[in-house]
Each structure stands twice: as C-alpha cells, then as structure tokens.
C-alpha cells in the first residue's frame, strides 16, 4: 500500500497525467473525422485508421523521399487523404448506403484489409520514421513535455473549435447538419444528398490526414499501425455519442487518461483493457453514448 501511495504522489505520475492529457488531444483529433462521418452519413468507416496510416506514409514520402519541407508535406498528406475519403465514398460507401448496417460495416472492413495489404505491397513492412523531432521542454526539474504532443493537442483543440464553427455557422455546415437529422425530407427539399455526403467524406478524410501529420511526428509508420489505435477511436466516438463532436472530444480525454494511468500502474496492455472495460460498462449505463443528447 505504501508503494501505491508513493507511486501516486511521485512526479512521474504527474508526468503521466500530463502525457495522458496531451495524448487525449491526438485521440480527439483522430476521432473527429470518424465522428463527423458517423454522424452525417451514418456509416461506420472501420477502415478509418487505415486512411490515417496512408496519410502517415504520404507525410513520409513527401518529406523524406521528395524532400518537401514539413508543412507543405503535411498539406500534401491532408489533400491526399481527403481525396481518398472522397473516392472511398464514391466507390464503396455510395453502393451500400441503403443496405443493412452489417453490410456497410463489412464493406469498409474489406477496405481495411485492402488498404493494409496494399500498403504492405507498396511500402513493405519496415518501420519508417519521418525523423522530425520537435524536442521537448522542461516544466519543472523532473517533468518534461514533448513538444510534438503539445502541438498535436493545440491543433486538435483548434480543429474541434473550427469544426464546431463550420457546422454551426456556415451554409454548408447547416446543410450537413440538416441531412444528418433527416435523410429523406432533405432530399425532397431539393438537396443533393450524394454531393453532401461526398463533401463530408472529403472533410472526414482531410481530418484523418491532419491526424496523420501529427501522429507521424510521434510514431513510426508501418502497414499495421492502424490496428494499434483504430479500435480505440471507435470506442471514443461511440462513448461520446455518435456524431456528437463535443462528446467525442471529452471521451478522448477520458480514454487517454485511463490508458495513461493504467499503463503507469501496470503494462500498456492493461491500460487498454481498463479503457475498453470502462467503455463496455459506460455503454450499459448510457447505451446512446455518455454525452448523447436526449432525442
């Protein structure tokens, strides 16, 4: 028991909490795009994390192979994944829109296999590192914070705010909100649903690309990197209430803290187990997600 409290009040634990907070920023950004698509098109992109993986490859190739500076390389990645999201919608999702949810899930699951293996085919299985480090800075004597995590956190917060403003203030945002509320009536009102869905998919893809840029600063890229955070991102979206961007944002931080704390006291895997268990229990309490608005 004594060691437990020693652990609890050590600087390392504070550092863990801080890292959890920053990790939450990355997760929040990751869940944002998926959440948008979930909420608007009502389709689960099981392959979402694989789009992020391809975005990380795009950063790597633009920056390390073709020698673009980091910022233009990120722009390339964002545009590439946005295009990919649009193509995904046109080629696959558009054909299963009216079908049973299971078929939609499976179609994107097939895309998951496809993207994973085509990445293996083209890029090989080596771990590639973008090799850009922003370094870290010292808060107190013992506590360091990685700058790339801090940047990810800030960009995530700004993006969530930006998305919120876009959806609530702009004409296009209003249209997207409207179609997510009633798919049938909006079409009768003369709205081109397919065009809206295409645009939403592109935005969702772009957000995946943005997340990829920030992840590329912290992690190596390999074809199976998606599996390591994909499930987590789904859980966050569901726990936040599908399509509820603010809920997803909060849920991301809850998850990140659970994982950080769990891994501090035991292994990284136990952190994930803890987070998933909390997710399952949370679902029992609020089946529509913890932060879902009552309909």
């Amino acid at each position: 028991m004594e060691t437990f409290f020693d652990n609890l009040f050590s600087v390392f634990f504070i550092e863990t909490l801080l890292n959890g907070l920053l990790y939450g920023g990355v997760l929040a950004l990751l869940s944002l795009g998926l959440n948008l698509i979930f909420g608007v098109i009502d389709v689960v992109w099981i392959c979402y994390a694989e789009l992020v993986m391809l975005g990380m490859y795009a950063v790597y190739f633009a920056h390390n192979v073709y020698g673009l500076p980091m910022l233009p390389a990120c722009a390339v990645a964002i545009l590439a994944v946005a295009l990919l999201g649009y193509i995904l919608h046109r080629v696959v999702i558009a054909h299963v829109l009216g079908k049973a949810p299971i078929n939609q899930l499976l179609a994107t699951g097939g895309v998951l296999f496809f993207l994973q293996s085509i990445a293996t085919l083209i890029f090989g299985v080596e771990f590639l590192s973008v090799g850009v480090s922003l370094g870290s800075f010292q808060i107190t004597e013992d506590i360091y914070v990685s700058k790339s995590q801090l940047v990810a956190f800030i960009i995530a917060a700004v993006t969530v705010l930006g998305m919120y403003l876009f959806l609530s203030r702009s004409y296009m945002g209003a249209a997207i909100r409207a179609i997510s509320q009633d798919r049938e009536i909006m079409i009768l009102m003369g709205v081109d649903a397919n065009r809206l869905y295409g645009i939403t998919s592109a935005i969702g893809g772009g957000l995946a690309g943005l997340a990829a840029c920030l992840l590329a600063l912290q992690f190596d890229v390999h074809p199976f990197v998606g599996i390591s955070f994909g499930p987590l991102v789904f859980m966050i979206c569901v726990m936040g209430g599908l399509g509820n961007l603010v809920g997803g944002f909060i849920a991301a931080f809850v998850f990140a803290q659970l994982i950080a704390t769990g891994s501090y006291f035991a292994d990284l895997e136990w952190g994930a187990v803890l987070a998933f268990c909390v997710f399952v229990i949370a679902m029992f309490i609020r089946p529509e997600g913890l932060f879902a608005r009552k309909s």
Binding site: L106, G110, L112, F113, L115, S117, L121
Partner: peptide, 15 residues
C-alpha cells in the same frame, strides 16, 4: 501483401 490485396477487393465486391 498481394494475396490479401486481392482478398480485400473480392470481399468488398462480394458485399
């Protein structure tokens, strides 16, 4: 990875 690439495409087509 070529085998799984084709596998993935076929799954999507099936669905």
């Amino acid at each position: 990875g070529l085998d799984n690439t084709i596998y993935g495409i076929m799954l999507v087509l099936f669905i």
